[in-house]
Nucleic acid binder design. Structure first.
Lengths: 293, 293
DNA sequence: TTGTTCTTGTAATAAAAATTTCCATGCTGG
DNA sequence: CCAGCATGGAAATTTTTATTACAAGAACAA
């Protein structure tokens, strides 16, 4: 009746991982299929699931049996239970208790400030510069390198991670200064360097940008209203507001602009980006499969 | 055969809302039951669903018929399709129709979307959870470790870089999976792990969080509206909106929340943070001097 | 009240699905 | 090269599940 206690995993996914070693080749196929489109695949009928995984019905049943379920219905029930507890967690957990300090609502105030910040910043972005920068970033023939300072390194990384999905030949300059010369070496005439640099402008970053620019590399600069000295050598400059009244600094506007650029590039090169992402997806799946063994 | 076109809603939930007026009293019961535990209730058998809603089987079928499905199987298929398309990353979602120089303002539209995103997300953050999380992050006695997935790694890094200024004993889990065990080793009971995990939830990250939680570590989760499975072991869950209409995903809301948390911690421990930052400044100056020579 | 219509559940029936049986196939070791 | 064994699918069988037919009961109008 009930599933035996010997099966360790709380979730079906966990059970699969624990059992993967004991599965035969064609039992492993639906197992991985399920993990890939979890948990939908398992909520279909046996026949549908079997077709999706490219095996026969009985194989599905042998799999669920090995996972410790005494029937396919029991297996599905487990999946539904999981799904339900997962999807309902946030709803039941949000009784919106207003436990802010005294009267003021910290989150509300912060939101208001950051939103204003983003709006004023974005309003001031010169449209032509934006389009030009997007054009540079979308051009596959150009190598693209991103670099950031102490804090802005995370923004450089964010841009890097997303651009990398859309096009080849993108690199991120790490935070280890020692590796920087190699990056400079690779940057050629007409390549693109994206620099994030805000007040307390970092000298090493400025130097890096200057050297790159000297070699004929296009420099796109994201900076704050104090404008980094990199501007002197940059081809496109985007200055946004980072200061919040009476608080810490915020990268909100800078991230918004960066994301807008990514979206712009994405829209521009939709065709090639799509096929690239699909290939990427394919490769990932294969890697995952192999790893599963 | 196919569902008729007269039925407006793209999603089953929408269809229900549009049809609610035309339903009888006892048809309305399962309809609302479904909306309450969506979509799990509808994935059960007719009998189970009927029992859950307190009606008979045929009433369920009359309901699905009125919703425009020609069979219960078709109804379930629609629910599964929805679920799958939402749980699965939009591997290749077409971007907004190329909004070149034609009338539309790309930046303006994007700004509007992201601002709306941030506002709705932040409004839903439970204040008490927020305060509790800030309390944990501000507590020097606890070690704090941040971790992110493929894309969200940059957010984990952002939080790490800022927290590090405010307090000691903060670490970032790198993107090299090989180094992860060491981090787990260091995490003790009552320490704090901050996890960033969005749709296409990453299995290795989930496993990491689970192991940490098993050891008694507090887990703070930043996720999207589809809620990472990490939620099951998390002490505090923050679900924000990451989807932008017809575009790439946006981390804007997640970053805003993360920054709000940082600001909160900063405000809370103003005294100690200030002296820490001053000492840090001192050290930096010395290092810079030495290096400058 | 009484007839009519609209709801809704019970029970019978049909359809579909899960499960089992059994045999073909391919692999391993002697 | 063959015996023995593990594997996996086709087809038969059984069970479950959806679906339909029908009748009881409620709501309403005249």
């Amino acid at each position: 009746m009930k599933e035996e206690a010997e099966f360790t995993g709380r979730s079906v996914a966990e059970r699969i991982r624990n059992t993967l070693g004991r599965l035969t080749a064609s039992e492993r196929r639906p197992a991985l299929t399920l993990l890939e489109s979890y948990p939908v695949a398992g909520l279909e009928t046996v026949a549908q699931f079997a077709r999706r995984a490219g095996v026969s019905g009985p194989t599905i049943l042998r799999l669920t049996a090995k996972l410790g379920f005494d029937s396919y219905a029991g297996f599905q029930q487990a999946l539904r239970d999981e799904l339900e507890s997962r999807l309902q967690a946030p709803l039941s957990k949000a009784p919106v208790a207003s436990t802010r300090a005294e009267g003021r609502d910290f989150i509300g105030d912060y939101t208001e400030a950051i939103v204003g910040n983003i709006q004023t910043s974005m309003a001031q972005i010169p449209r032509a510069e934006f389009e030009a920068a997007a054009g540079l970033l979308g051009d596959e023939k150009r190598r693209v390198v991103t670099i950031g300072g102490r804090f802005t390194h995370s923004l450089a990384q964010h841009l890097y991670l997303h651009l990398r999905e859309l096009r080849p030949r993108v690199a991120l300059v790490g935070d280890q200064t020692a590796t920087w010369p190699e990056h400079l070496l690779d940057l050629a005439r007409n390549d693109v360097l994206v620099v994030f640099d805000i007040r307390r402008f970092q000298d090493d970053v400025v130097q890096f940008a200057k050297q790159a620019a000297a070699g004929g590399t296009h420099v796109i600069l994201f900076t704050d209203t104090w404008v980094s000295p990199v501007a002197a050598v940059a081809t496109h400059v985007f200055a946004v507001e980072t200061a919040l009244p009476s608080s810490w600094e915020s990268f909100g506007a800078m991230m918004a602009l960066s994301e807008a650029l990514i979206a712009r590039v994405h829209a521009e090169r939709w065709g090639s980006a799509k096929s690239r992402m699909e290939r990427l997806e394919q490769i990932r799946r294969n890697l995952f499969r192999a790893e599963g063994q």
